[in-house]
Amino acid sequence: MNKRALVIGLFIAVLASVISQALLHGQKAIATDAALYIPYFLSPLFSLLIQATSMLAWAVPGLYVGYSCKNKPVQHAAIVGAAYAAILGAGVFAMQSSKLIDTDSMLVFAVSSLTQMAKYSVLFALSAPAGYFLATHRANL
Rank of each mutant, 00 (worst) to 15 (best):
F46A: 15
F11R: 10
L63S: 01
A13L: 06
L56N: 08
W58A: 06
W58Q: 06
A85L: 01
M95V: 08
I101D: 15
V108W: 09
A86E: 04
T103W: 15
A59D: 07
A29D: 15
S47C: 12
V7S: 08
M55T: 11
Q27D: 09
L49T: 06
L23E: 02
G66Y: 02
G81F: 01
L63G: 00
L36T: 14
Q51M: 12
I38G: 11
A77R: 00
A86M: 08
A77E: 02
W58C: 07
Y64C: 05
L107T: 09
A110F: 08
C69Q: 02
K99S: 15
G89W: 00
A31T: 10
V7L: 12
I101L: 15
P61D: 00
D102H: 06
A77S: 05
M95W: 07
V111P: 03
P61N: 01
W58Y: 13
V7Q: 07
F46I: 13
V92D: 14
D104Y: 10
C69M: 05
L15P: 02
S98W: 13
I87L: 10
Y37I: 14
S43M: 15
M106N: 10
V108P: 06
T53M: 03
F46W: 13
A78R: 00
V18M: 05
S43L: 15
L45M: 14
G66P: 01
Q21G: 13
G9I: 00
V18N: 01
S68T: 11
T53Q: 03
A94I: 08
A94C: 10
C69P: 00
Q51V: 14
M95F: 11
S97V: 10
K72F: 06
Q51C: 11
L36S: 14
L107R: 09
P73S: 07
Y64W: 07
D33I: 13
W58P: 05
T53K: 03
P73N: 06
A35I: 08
Q75W: 08
K72C: 05
G66A: 08
T103R: 13
S112C: 08
A83F: 07
G62D: 02
Q27R: 11
L23W: 04
L15V: 09
I8S: 05
V18K: 05
A31E: 11
I50R: 12
A77T: 02
L42C: 09
L10C: 07
Y64K: 04
A110K: 04
S97Y: 11
L42D: 10
M55N: 12
D102V: 04
L56T: 09
L49K: 06
G89Y: 01
W58M: 08
K70S: 12
S97I: 09
S20H: 04
L15D: 04
G81R: 00
L42K: 11
F11M: 14
P39H: 14
V65E: 04
S105D: 08
V92N: 13
S54W: 07
A13G: 09
Y64D: 01
A57I: 07
T103H: 12
P44G: 02
S105T: 08
A94M: 11
G91H: 03
L100T: 01
F93L: 12
G91V: 02
L63M: 05
I12Q: 03
Q96W: 10
F41R: 14
L49Y: 06
V92Y: 12
G9Y: 00
Y84A: 01
S54L: 09
A22C: 12
